[in-house]
Amino acid sequence: MAKEIYSYNNKELSKEKLDSFAKWIFHNHCIKLYFCEIKGSRWSFYAGLHNVIASQKRIMITKKIGMVAEADSVDKKTIDKVINIIKDEVSKIKEVSDVQI
């Protein structure tokens, strides 16, 4: 079966989780970000903060999900830390809501 970041039935659940996760990252690490689903060369907004103005960092988390962040002035160590937290969190979402990643 083709891998998807969500199955159409539980789309809402994973969106909500990623939304609140983006808020958590902002409060704790001052990085504004949102998540995209990747389809070929298209990155489509999926969840996260809507007030990200400059899309300065574009990072692929898995083959199907990417992160876009306004974080140019944030040091690399913090960025790496956040990416690791995201990867960890994304895998938890898979466990909790049966989202395929």
Binding site: F35, R42, W43, S44, Y46, S55, R58, G66
Partner: peptide, 15 residues
């Protein structure tokens, strides 16, 4: 073609 490749699509680009 940036919008399409960094999530500025659909309702987000409309906003």
């Amino acid at each position: 073609t940036a919008g399409y490749r960094c999530g500025r699509t659909g309702d987000r680009i409309m906003g």
